[in-house]
């Protein structure tokens, strides 16, 4: 019959209308600023710089290698390399970024900077409430605004941060072992040199080829 479907449709909408006052399940809206949905672990939007320890400047992992700056597709990263060096997490002297700016109004959240960083220094944040009344300065994040602690990283992405920490620890152990081995080898060589003061040639025992590291 003509008009039957309209009656049926109106019954459906009436049911939805009245049901939304009765049943909580019918109203899936989350009243955002007061109520929040927990973020998923994989949520990411803009990059930040990781630092170890308590001092953001001292502990910053970034060594200003500028790979991310070169890889960034929309070119939103701007880095100035420092003139001096500071020790990194392994105590090795490294350059550090004198300036590190990310323009988040340009950033497209592609995560390529994170993928290419060899030092695990830049990671993706899950902070999304970045609205500001200053559209130029407010959206250009400098080094200090970008720096966030490794603890924060562990807090927002626990799984990923765990992997990164394990890898860095392994590298540190490896480096320490290598340094130890190098030191031992050096000591042994020195001892051997001391034990054999005579310039008697010993062709049967070939000395460790010093040219090997270059090869």
């Amino acid at each position: 019959m003509l008009g039957e479907a309209i009656i049926k449709g109106m019954a459906v909408t009436a049911k939805n209308f009245l049901g939304s006052y009765v049943s909580e399940e019918r109203l899936p809206t989350i009243e955002y600023p007061e109520q929040r949905q927990p973020l998923k672990e994989a949520v990411r939007n803009f990059p930040f710089l990781v630092y170890d320890g308590d001092d953001w400047h001292k502990g910053m992992r970034c060594v200003a290698c500028q790979i991310c700056e070169k890889e960034c597709p929309p070119k939103c990263i701007y880095i100035v390399k420092s003139k001096d060096k500071k020790p990194d997490y392994m105590g090795k002297a490294q350059f550090y970024p004198a300036t590190f700016d990310i323009d988040v109004s340009v950033c497209m959240s592609c995560q390529i900077c994170v993928e290419v960083c060899p030092f695990e220094a830049i990671k993706m944040d899950n902070e999304f409430e970045l609205s500001t009344s200053d559209r130029f300065g407010g959206l250009l994040l400098d080094k200090q605004k970008l720096a966030k602690s490794n603890g924060y990283y562990r807090h927002i992405h626990p799984t990923e941060a765990g992997e990164v920490d394990a890898r860095l620890a392994a590298e540190k152990v490896k480096a320490e072992a290598k340094a130890k081995a190098d030191a031992e080898a050096k000591a042994k060589a020195a001892a051997a040199a001391a034990a054999a003061p005579k310039p008697v040639s010993t062709p049967a025992t070939p000395a460790a080829p010093p040219a090997a590291p270059n090869g």
């Binding site: 939805n16 006052y21 019918r26 109203l27 809206t29 009243e31």
Partner: peptide, 10 residues
Amino acid sequence: KGLGRIQNRP
């Protein structure tokens, strides 16, 4: 508000 309730939003 009415259209919202019909579409199950406040």
